[in-house]
Nucleic acid binder design. Structure first.
Lengths: 151, 151
DNA sequence: GTATCTGCAAATGCTTTGCACACCC
DNA sequence: GGGTGTGCAAAGCATTTGCAGATAC
């Protein structure tokens, strides 16, 4: 999936954002961003923690949760609420997209439909509301599962 | 909000559905449906339990959870995952709609956009997937909150 | 009568928080 | 050096589950 920005550029913005909030940097914060950037997919807090632990044994899931909350607030990452089993996170430096989730195998496909994007803006306008963000998930049985379950 | 069906008709379908699954009816199951139907809005398991308790002191939230899972599986109700604080449920016997959620006051507005509905079908088709359902939430600052916070 | 449903309490699973030590500026 | 971050363990909260008694068919 196409990235809008290099990892180094994101980390630079992260450092600025941390300073601006009167906070201090840490290896773990950069690691979380780095893991999400490199994976390019939707990871759970557990998976992120495991991934960081490959290099740094002493990484706690509680810090990962704290960092994820900070990164989301600062819009470095997006939250995806899957159907069950909690949230997943992905790097924000991807082009905007929505998700198709297979109810059968759990696979996640990304897509964008410009027409839908435009209509969403119109809908918000109709209610005199300011559109901040949206979340659209299509629940499907994917092509692979349809083929595998022809009975 | 316009109902597609009377409460009595839904309860009749519920009884059929229970029989078809080899299960037994219960006062609580009908109560949950009834509360959701009459409220017409999106209630939390806690709120549903409280509402039933007004008439029947001995109603447990665990039964409400069990009943909600059954009702959702049988498509008598829909689940709405709010941003925080768990899920909310609404009766399915309303015309299909999506949700606008105000990030400021939490208000929920319902809407349908036929063009978006159509595009969703096309998107699923493009990926050779069978569209089962969808969930779209527009996160906004609503008109009321925009007015109240002009600063 | 017997299988299912309920209420209660305990368990679960994801997420948050309190605390003491570590680390950044 | 002082404040913020981290790891750990414990707490929180929504949801699920095990069990014994209640209820529907």
């Amino acid at each position: 999936m196409h990235r809008l920005e290099t990892l180094e550029s994101i980390l630079e913005r992260l450092r600025v954002s941390i300073r601006k909030n009167g906070l201090k940097n840490s290896k773990q914060r950069e690691e979380v961003v780095s893991v999400l950037y490199k994976s390019g997919t939707h990871l759970s807090p557990e998976e992120i923690t495991q991934s960081i632990r490959l290099r740094d044994k002493n990484t706690s899931i509680s810090s990962v949760y704290r960092i994820l909350n900070f990164l989301e607030k600062e819009r470095f990452i997006y939250t995806l609420e899957t159907n069950k089993n909690g949230r997943r996170y992905e790097i924000a430096a991807k082009e905007h997209h929505d998700h198709i989730i297979c109810l059968h195998c759990g696979d996640i496909i990304e897509f964008v439909d410009p027409e839908i994007e435009e209509r969403q803006i119109q809908v918000a306008k109709k209610f005199d509301a300011k559109l901040v963000s949206h979340d659209m998930r299509l629940f499907v049985v994917c092509a692979k599962c349809l083929l595998a379950n022809k009975d």
